[in-house]
């Protein structure tokens, strides 16, 4: 197996773990953790393609990964803020009990 394929397989496995977590957990924070894992797996793909791609001096994949890290940080802040706001009105973070949108 080529080095690129091994990195891509690790990233695919990590993405699937994150997806499984986001789809099976009841706690909203754990769902966010699953989403973070998926974003990180995508970053690993970008870096691996940058490293083994034909023109690494162009820095394209690296820049994409850095901007992706910044956007994921913003997403985490807003997501956790939303979870705290929902907890304040619904008094739970269990997604099976949060079944109405009215505050």
């Amino acid at each position: 197996m080529t080095p690129l394929a091994s990195y891509l397989l690790v990233a695919a496995l990590l993405f699937s773990i994150g997806l499984a977590g986001a789809l099976t957990r009841r706690n909203a924070i754990l769902v966010l953790i699953g989403i973070e894992l998926m974003l990180n797996a995508a970053n690993l793909n970008l870096i691996a393609f940058w490293r083994y791609g034909p023109n690494p001096e162009a820095l394209t994949g690296m820049m994409f990964a850095i901007f992706s890290i910044a956007v994921a940080a913003a997403e985490a802040a807003v997501g956790l803020g939303l979870v705290i706001a929902i907890y304040r009105s619904a008094h739970t973070t269990d997604l099976e009990q949060i079944n109405r949108m009215k505050g």
Binding site: S16, L19, A20, L23, R26
Partner: peptide
């Protein structure tokens, strides 16, 4: 429990 009632569906989708 910590897993949702439909956890098996999520696991199948991830797999």
């Amino acid at each position: 429990g910590v897993f949702s009632r439909t956890w098996i569906v999520g696991l199948v989708i991830a797999a």
